[in-house]
Design a protein around this nucleic acid. Structure first.
Lengths: 218, 218
DNA sequence: AACACTTTGTTTAATTCTTGACAAACAAGA
DNA sequence: TCTTGTTTGTCAAGAATTAAACAAAGTGTT
């Protein structure tokens, strides 16, 4: 009941709130008002109050919100108070970048294994992990029980590998494949990331900039 | 007038339509109905018809939509019929991965230069480009006039470098910095990508999966 | 302690987005 | 050519989202 009542639009904003509050905390902020936060984030104060109200009353009239407490609360909603073991499939450019670049710990995950099908990269060290062969995947999953996986593999293998991982007990996919993963299982979470779509959005925004297009008379 | 009338929600869906139509075309589809496309994309047929109608009547009753024609039209809306010169700042893990992984041509851009502040990586070859020193940035921009830039640099430098690039004529930023770039210039487009937020969203989704949480009685 | 000021939580209103419904238009086969 | 079936474009109803408004509660200063 607690979670189901929070609308999707609110959920989509929560990671950003969490991030901003983290920055504020790092900068020594102890309290913040909805008005000031709205200013910083480019939202309305009304929306912020309404959002935070979805999961309890954390503010205090005349004072505002306690940054640390509020951040912790949002973190709990987002499930960041647990650490889910995660593996990476595909140690190509993108896989390596994610393994090195992402702060898994602060996002509720821990990267415990990296796998690749290419024998040439098996054995490479990335961060503190060395790349294993996909042949070891089943044995590894049986032993270490990862619950989440990052997919940085070719488009054509996404569905097959996802199904395999599900059979090994994986429940969440962070999918960077050029393919929209849609799992029939309703107990499996998927986050499809399409960097190409993001760049396309930038193209649209750029094309609308004044002076860019000839037919921008209207 | 043409563009301003398209709502934001529709725009956000356009890149995905474009991608799906590309896949369909590659698979030999010549025509498709809103009903069938809705099925494939997990949307309602009504929404698809309404979306496509925002920018003209491309369908035909009793027939559906011509895949190639529709895709081309959406591409035009998205500005994919031009090729905007783009540079990359930061040749670390993530920068390299993007340079290698993204199909710039089909997203309306062309990557023409890569820059890094670290002398150790200057001279490295990535794809067909070699990494240049940031010292050459101004001269390069004066000569080649890039209009867009990817930022894969440390958080603290994002704002400063963005301002510098704007003064060199850059009008669009694809920002992977852990920082929400907000440009006062209204003639500058920004697409902030926060992979960490995306992973956080997955954490939330996973935490809501049945059997995962103890307190999921309700 | 009293007063002026700030800020929340909540209600209500406005706006935006999505879905359902259906007539008009076309396709395809007899 | 006529008839049946399909599918669009569009309108209108229904949801969902966002913004505005305000009383109640607390702060901080004198």
């Amino acid at each position: 009941m607690s979670k189901n009542s929070i609308s999707n639009s609110v959920i989509r904003r929560l990671p950003r709130y969490h991030r901003f509050l983290g920055d504020l905390e790092a900068n020594g902020y102890v309290r913040i008002s909805s008005r000031e936060l709205a200013e910083k984030m480019g939202l309305t104060a009304s929306q912020i109050r309404q959002d935070f109200n979805c999961f309890g009353e954390f503010g205090q009239q005349g004072y505002g919100y306690n940054v640390k407490e509020l951040r912790g609360e949002i973190g709990k909603i987002l499930g960041l108070d647990v650490s889910t073991p995660m593996i990476l499939l595909g140690a190509g450019n993108l896989g390596r970048a994610l393994a090195a670049h992402i702060d898994f710990r602060n996002r509720g995950f821990e990267l415990i294994g990296i796998f690749d099908a290419n024998p040439a990269v098996v054995g490479d060290t990335i961060g503190e992990l060395s790349v294993r062969s996909v042949d070891e995947l089943e044995a590894f999953c049986t032993q270490h029980r990862p619950e989440a996986a990052i997919l940085c593999i070719p488009k054509g293998e996404a569905e097959k590998e996802a199904d395999r991982l599900i059979s090994y007990g994986v429940r969440a996919f962070w999918n960077f494949t050029h393919y929209d993963l849609r799992i029939s299982h309703k107990d499996v979470a998927v986050e499809n990331v399409h960097l190409g779509d993001s760049l396309t959005t930038l193209s649209y925004a750029l094309s609308g900039i004044s002076g860019k297009d000839k037919e921008d008379k209207e």
